[in-house]
Design a protein around this nucleic acid. Structure first.
Length: 271
DNA sequence: CCGGATGTTCACCT
DNA sequence: GAGGTGAACATCCG
């Protein structure tokens, strides 16, 4: 997916639908709806309302809807929650937010539109070739940890704290959305590479200075790659593959599986 | 044809 | 209970 950075771009794109009225809903792929949500349920929930805000929590995009009428006491509508899975992309009025994804635009297929919300003057669509994306109403945000883009040093320390032993590998814990929301596979590799920390370090084994260093690089990497335009534009990314070398010291990168995900790291300076 | 892919979840071990 | 592993999901791409 779409990690935190891409979802943030989607959020910015979604700002363009605020204040416009939902006129219809179609769901070419029913699988995207999280049970018990149905097409008619989604339609009844949204048609006639306007989206009032676009928020993001980790990799979850949240579109809040307003009341059906402009009466002062009419209740606000539900929150539309969108998860993008591995290949999901938001398209608003036929515009996408990200230049390059794995299955990227330029290769748009109408067959990949999994959900479409018609709005006055246009539409909001979820494109998703691989069909891991999901849409829910009023998603439970309480299951998510603090957002990685704004996490404080104390919150990061808490997220990495181990209850038993040294804890799981650092990278596995950084990707645990219940502890810290928003980091995915690529961002974690880039952050750990910049911070000079091995993905295998037990998450609870970091010293005070190492925690501060990780926090600094985490925040800096997120803002840096937000400017660059995506998770795939990190310094490590071009070397992240067979035969790749560390851009910092030239050491051959090592491929491991950490927390179930392919991990590329420098055995020389990531300790 | 095969392996792998920016993710989540569940079953099954230890 | 915590944590690890592997598989499943589904589809496309190199």
């Amino acid at each position: 997916m779409p990690e935190l950075l891409e979802v943030e771009f989607y959020r910015q794109l979604a700002l363009g639908v605020l204040g416009r009225t939902v006129t219809g809903v179609s769901v070419p792929d029913k699988k995207v709806l999280v049970p018990p949500l149905t097409v008619t349920g989604l339609r009844r929930a949204l048609v006639g309302r306007q989206f009032t805000s676009a928020r993001r929590h980790g990799k979850l995009l949240l579109l809040e809807s307003g009341p059906l009428a402009d009466w002062g006491d009419a209740p606000a509508g539900p929150i539309l929650g969108i998860r993008f899975g591995m290949t999901g992309e938001l398209v608003v009025d036929d515009r996408s937010a990200v230049d390059r994804l794995l299955y990227s635009p330029g290769r748009y297929g109408p067959q990949w539109v999994r959900c479409r919300i018609e709005l006055s003057g246009g539409r909001l669509e979820l494109h998703d070739p691989r069909r891991f994306g999901r849409i829910a109403l009023d998603p439970d945000e309480s299951v998510l940890g603090p957002d990685a883009a704004t996490v404080s040093p104390a919150e990061l320390r808490g997220a990495l704290a181990a209850r038993t032993g040294g804890g799981p590998p650092l990278k596995a814990r950084l990707q645990d959305q219940a502890r810290l929301a928003g980091l995915g596979n690529l961002l974690c590799d880039e952050i750990l590479w910049r911070a000079g920390l091995s993905p295998w370090r037990p998450s609870g084994s970091l010293t005070g200075p190492e925690l501060r260093r990780l926090h600094r690089h985490l925040r800096a990497t997120v803002s840096d790659l937000l400017v660059r335009g995506g998770s795939h534009l990190g310094d490590l990314m071009p070397e992240r593959g067979a035969g790749g070398h560390c851009p910092r010291d030239g050491t051959a990168l090592v491929r491991s599986t950490v927390g179930g995900r392919t991990t590329w790291w420098c055995p020389s300076h990531q300790v």
